[in-house]
Computed example of a mutant assay.
Amino acid sequence: MNARAESLEAACDLRFGQVGIACVRLRRVDAAALVEELERRVRSAPQMFARAAVVLDLSHLPKLPDDGMVDALLEAIRSAGMLPVGLAYGTSETEALAERMGLPLIAKFRAQYEPAQGEAAAATPAVPAAARTPEPARAAAPTHDTDAAASSTAQHHSGSTVRSGQQVYARDRDLVVTAGVANGAEVIADGSIHIYGSLRGRAMAGAQGDETARIFCSDFRAELVAIAGHYRVFEDIPKEFEGQSVQCWLDSGKLMIARL
């Protein structure tokens, strides 16, 4: 190998991996309403949404906007304090639009947000693809065998705490964390998440849209929990859950939390 080839090889290291990207699923074309809604989200949880990377999903609109309107929508996202990084993969028309505008297509969002057959696009305000914050669960949670859920195929993270800025991702399986998850750290799984230490950072289960996934934690102090895109951000942990063993699950699209 000549010196020039060696120099090029050492210039960088390019790899693909799981990254934390939010999805803005548009329900109607209204740039002003989009700015207002996203600004509200940023104000409510700046540590989560300020300068967050987001993908614009146009698949639920009755027709694809023209290039000028898409540009206005992207600018609306920037004005709200978020950073649009591409379009969610959809039809061939979406692909052509992304190519014209010099934007990447993010394919990972297709399965999670693709509407069911016959589902009509609702004319509701544009919001990120996540549920509105529900009230804490008061009723007893459904019974669930945590040992059975943490199957032998689960990915295990043991030993050191998941540090701030670190991300652990279990693809196509559950994630079992025997240490703690620090503030600013993320644990993500396509299946359920079991944390046998303190959860102070973010836990996101059902990352590819599995609404049956759950989160189990023995010391709950989370910044955020999410299941299949439905999330809840915590500025202050409710007293009945702080430091307690809890489980999180979805019930008719609402993220529920209850003590174990």
Results as ranks from 00 to 15, higher is better:
Pro46Asp: 05
Thr153Ser: 15
Gln18Ile: 01
Glu211Pro: 01
Gln166Pro: 00
Leu56Tyr: 05
Thr133Glu: 11
Ala149Gln: 09
Ala226Trp: 00
Arg132Cys: 04
Trp249Arg: 01
Arg43Asn: 14
Leu64His: 08
Ala111Ile: 02
Lys108His: 10
Ala76Glu: 03
Glu6Tyr: 09
His156Asn: 07
Glu39Thr: 14
Asn2Lys: 09
Met48Leu: 14
Met256Arg: 14
Glu223Cys: 01
Ala50Cys: 11
Leu38Gly: 11
Asp251Glu: 14
Lys239Met: 07
Leu73Trp: 05
Ala213Val: 00
Arg27Gly: 15
Leu74Trp: 05
Arg43Glu: 15
Leu97Phe: 10
Arg163Glu: 13
Leu260Ile: 14
Ala140Met: 08
Leu105Trp: 04
Asp172Thr: 08
Met256Pro: 01
Pro238Gln: 07
Ala140His: 11
Ala228Leu: 02
Arg200Lys: 12
Met256Val: 03
Thr133Gln: 08
Val42Asp: 05
Arg100Glu: 05
Asp251Ser: 11
Phe109Tyr: 10
Ala123Asp: 14
Asp210Val: 02
Asp190Asn: 11
Pro46Arg: 06
Gln117Gly: 06
Val42Pro: 08
Gly253Leu: 04
Met101Asn: 06
Glu242Lys: 05
Arg214Trp: 00
Ala3Pro: 10
Lys108Arg: 13
Leu38Ser: 10
Ala107Asn: 09
Phe16Thr: 14
Val246Tyr: 02
Pro136Arg: 02
Glu39Met: 14
Leu83Gln: 13
Val168Asp: 03
Ala213Arg: 00
Arg259Pro: 02
Ala189Trp: 00
Asp219Asn: 14
Glu99Asp: 10
Gln244Gly: 02
Pro128Met: 12
Ser252Phe: 04
Arg132Asn: 10
Gly118Asp: 08
Met82Ala: 09
Ala129Gln: 07
Val24Gly: 09
Ser245His: 07
Ala170Glu: 04
Ser158Phe: 10
Gly165Lys: 05
Ala150Leu: 06
Leu56Arg: 02
Glu119Asn: 03
Ala170Ile: 06
Val85Trp: 05
Pro136Met: 04
Val127Tyr: 13
Val176Ala: 01
Asp30Asn: 15
Val181Phe: 01
Leu255Thr: 03
Val24Trp: 06
Tyr169Trp: 11
Val42His: 10
Ala32Ile: 11
Ala170Cys: 12
Gly197Ile: 02
Ser152Val: 13
Ala52Phe: 03
Ala31Gln: 08
Arg41Gln: 13
Leu64Ile: 12
His194Arg: 13
Gly197Glu: 04
Arg221Asn: 08
Met256His: 02
Glu37Met: 12
Glu9Leu: 15
Glu211Asn: 08
Asp219Thr: 10
Arg100Ala: 10
Thr212Pro: 00
Arg100Cys: 07
Tyr169Pro: 01
Gly17Lys: 04
Arg43Leu: 12
